[in-house]
């Protein structure tokens, strides 16, 4: 089973939930897909055993073959190419803007002159590791790079379905989040009981409904804030899987980079409970689908 942990905004405690859930279960693989700011490793301190470059294929033009027809520019959905035609005896040029390129391959496929070849451009790194018997994978996007989805996909290639897979998704509701969450059996949305929390939760819920992944909510710092998140969940029929009260213990252990379940074993039951809630809802959803 693949469980992703997401959040409409950063700083809600998404990684805290992912890490502590992973540590409370047996036979787990955790994938940190928050590749712009991976931080699960800070808490888990895994032993890194493998390292691989994350690359995307970006086009390179053979100007000897190119006649500056402009086809490549037209087909690039990401506006990453400009073609300056030859003019006044001056030869033309094709300009590629690699930081906008998604490596989709359309330009090289459709160039009528076969003038485009693809070269691998390094945009990040994937590291694999382990902690006791937990498997760990994370990706890190290079500074200055903007294309996190390809790195996220490369992290997800390591998914091992014989384990309970926990994905720490990037915050937000845009393309990288969808890339991370897609294919999950269940998604946990971590939120806070504040107006901002609610606002971002609503956006995240819209996304998950669109991509049809069953989900539930964890309310972090549940006792400081208002009741609007709970009211919203009730109205929308969204299960609340867990409420984590504000606690100094969690805050302190977070700041020290220590997962709270390692500091206070009683938290383990709470996260196991979260897992059981997830399984319950997922089974229900599955049986509905089969009918």
């Amino acid at each position: 089973m693949i469980i992703s942990i997401a959040s409409g905004k950063g700083g809600t405690g998404k990684t805290t939930v992912a890490v502590n859930l992973a540590l409370s279960l047996q036979n787990v693989q955790i994938l940190d897909c928050d590749v712009e700011e991976p931080n699960a490793h800070i808490f888990l301190k895994p032993k890194i055993i493998g390292e691989k470059k994350a690359v995307i294929p970006v086009p390179e033009i053979d100007e000897a073959k190119c006649d500056y027809c402009g086809k490549c520019r037209e087909v690039c959905a990401y506006h990453a190419i400009a073609v300056v035609p030859a003019n006044d005896g001056k030869k033309g040029s094709v300009l590629i803007f690699p930081h906008l390129c998604h490596g989709c391959g359309a330009c090289s496929l459709l160039c009528p002159k076969g003038a485009i070849k693809e070269i691998d451009k390094e945009i990040g790194i994937i590291e694999t590791g382990e902690k006791e018997n937990m498997m760990f994978v994370h990706g890190r996007l290079n500074v200055g790079e903007a294309m996190s989805p390809p790195v996220i996909r490369q992290v997800k290639k390591h998914i091992n379905l014989s384990k309970t897979v926990i994905i720490d998704a990037p915050p937000g509701t845009s393309c990288p989040v969808i890339t991370a969450v897609k294919g999950s059996d269940f998604c946990v949305l971590v939120t806070e009981p504040t107006p901002f929390g609610l606002n971002d939760l609503i956006l995240a819920v819209e996304v998950l409904r669109k991509i049809e992944i069953p989900f539930g909510v964890v309310i972090n710092r549940a006792d400081i804030g208002d009741g609007n998140v709970e009211d919203y969940c009730e109205k929308e029929n969204i299960p609340i899987l867990m409420k984590i009260p504000f606690s100094k213990e969690i805050a302190v252990s977070y700041s020290e980079g220590i997962p709270v379940v390692e500091r206070d074993i009683s938290y383990q039951d709470k996260f196991i409970n979260l897992y059981l809630n997830i399984c319950g809802i997922k089974n229900e959803a599955d049986s509905c689908r089969k009918r």
């Binding site: 506006h79 990453a80 400009a82 003019n87």
Partner: peptide, 21 residues
């Protein structure tokens, strides 16, 4: 029309201007 692009607005605006000579 390029003003709506998420990315590449400057590139494609430059392209348009170039294409117009």
């Amino acid at each position: 029309a390029n003003a709506q692009f998420q990315g590449g607005a400057g590139i494609q605006s430059g392209q348009l201007v170039v294409s117009k000579g």
